[in-house]
Amino acid sequence: MSTYSSMAELLALSEKNGTPVWKTVQLADCAEQDVTPESSWETMKNLLSVMRETDRGYDRRQRSLSGLSGGDAGLMEDRIASGKSILGPLVSRVAAAALRMGECNACMKRIVAAPTAGACGVLPAVLLTVAEEQHIPDDRVVEALYVAAGVGSVIAQRASISGAECGCQAEIGSAASMAAAALVHLLGGTGEQMSNAAALALKSLLGLVCDPVGGLVEVPCVKRNVTGAVTALTSADLALAGIQSRIPADEVFDAMREVGEKMDRTLRETGEGGLAATPTAKGRE
């Protein structure tokens, strides 16, 4: 028995097999997909390279087809360079990185859906920036990606990673949850702390609706990547401090599904409610 459908099962499996959480996720997937751990590792490592390549290839002059997205990460970079950002060196850089990736997605650049295209900025913003700041080797970042994937697959099984099904909480919320747990691994935390970080992050974003202006993956998606990334940072730090989520991760995921089911369809990626229904949004149609 190598599969899991809850964080509790994943941690128990890790304990029972005497393998770290990331390795447990990897081996379970290898068994399921009939691939070798080496080939799985190469696939994961490639995702990291794509993330890094796209991040470095950001061009502040690029604009999306609709003209709604582009240039904002450049503005944030200017503010960091000016020394005026109140976020401090790490958080301000994470914010800029999340904007870069979100804008690259809107501008038809190559991205890694994590877990979706609209939420593709959260995970790389957090992992690439923290790894660089703390000189953490790539192998450990790849391991952290496995942790993120493990959390994401539990969320997908218990709730959803689709905005059309459960709103933005399922996209940016899931991405933040995955990134928080991954960050705990990156910084040497325990499986328990990963689970707490995942719970804390999603709890903070529960109820977030999917209300894209014009039905496009741009407004508010690009900037919500910043929200997700910063939430992941704080959640991981809280968990590493030993702070627990009073509601266990699995129950938080189940609550997300329930909230999603109660969400009106106009707030689930249809582009008919929320921000998409504002006069300004309507005005551009």
Partner: peptide, 21 residues
């Protein structure tokens, strides 16, 4: 479902359904 359905696909944005699909 594979973990690479969660992390991935590698695709040109902006939408998995409207672009990659």
């Amino acid at each position: 479902m594979s973990i690479f359905d969660i992390l991935g696909p590698v695709m040109v944005g902006p939408s998995s359904s409207h672009t990659a699909g």
